[in-house]
Amino acid sequence: MDIRINNLEKIYRGNVHALNGLNLEIPNGMFGLLGPNGAGKTTLMRILAGILHGTSGELYVGEHNGMTAAGRTEIKRILGYLPQDLGVYPDLSAREFLDYIGILKGLNDKKARHKRVEELLELVALTHVANRKLKTYSGGMKRRAGIAQALLNDPKFLIVDEPTAGLDPEERIRFRNLLSSLGGNRVVLLSTHIVEDIAQTSQNIAMMRNGQVIFKGTLTDLINETQNKVWNVTSAGPLPQDNPNFVIVSTMNMGASMQYRIVGTPPANLSATPLAPNLEDGYVWLMHAPDRQPTSTLKR
């Protein structure tokens, strides 16, 4: 199954353009969606999940048309969704919460549903606390309960929006591993602004800015785009933060001098050594490249 988005627009009331003719094709497997806050990622996720309706354009999840009511209903049957702001019912236990969501997902056979709930509790390592009320859970535990509910119907299309925000490093690693293990025979769309999450989980990625996709490819493609654009610069005094030719990625105070990792064109009057780019450099480069064009319209 794949997802095809063609010229998708979303205009909120008050003429707020959240998506501006977005084009994207998402193949089977893990797919990372990167972008700064306000790029339109959550709007795209919500449209894909059938929560919001696109204003115009085309959207297909497999053969289901996401721009029609009937299509959205069909997509919901094969969808698992973990929202950015995960709200839970505080007075239900994790087991009850999953059972309830199972009912809403149409898992009508009580025995099969209970079995699935137990499997998922095991998968997300919540079995030992499954009878505790969700209001007593930590952020990481709530997230795990959240991913479990998303997996209840064994979805063909899984959307996880900013899943690791606010988690401690150990919980984040655990969550990333869990996500990676899920990307088998399904589309897993991982939206985040944390570059490290993408680096550890997804080979295929897209980057969004101002409601458009400005890059689509593999991690290697992204790093290649930044070849010969990352520099180590040493300067006696501080470099200006708002220079249009480069972006400072990191700064180290060496006492007598300052050492910078920059992306872009280094100042001519300073000595600069080229560095091997990483994903974060690629992200910074694309986000600040003023002449970056959105990806072209897909041919169907």
């Binding site: 919500r46 059938g50 209903t73 919901k76 969704y81 839970v88 809403l104 149409g106």
Partner: peptide, 18 residues
């Protein structure tokens, strides 16, 4: 007021019916 509204809206069982 539904704390899990966003999840509810992605369910095949329509939220207006719930």
């Amino acid at each position: 007021q539904d704390p899990a509204l966003e999840i509810q809206l992605t369910m095949p069982r329509k939220y207006h019916n719930t």
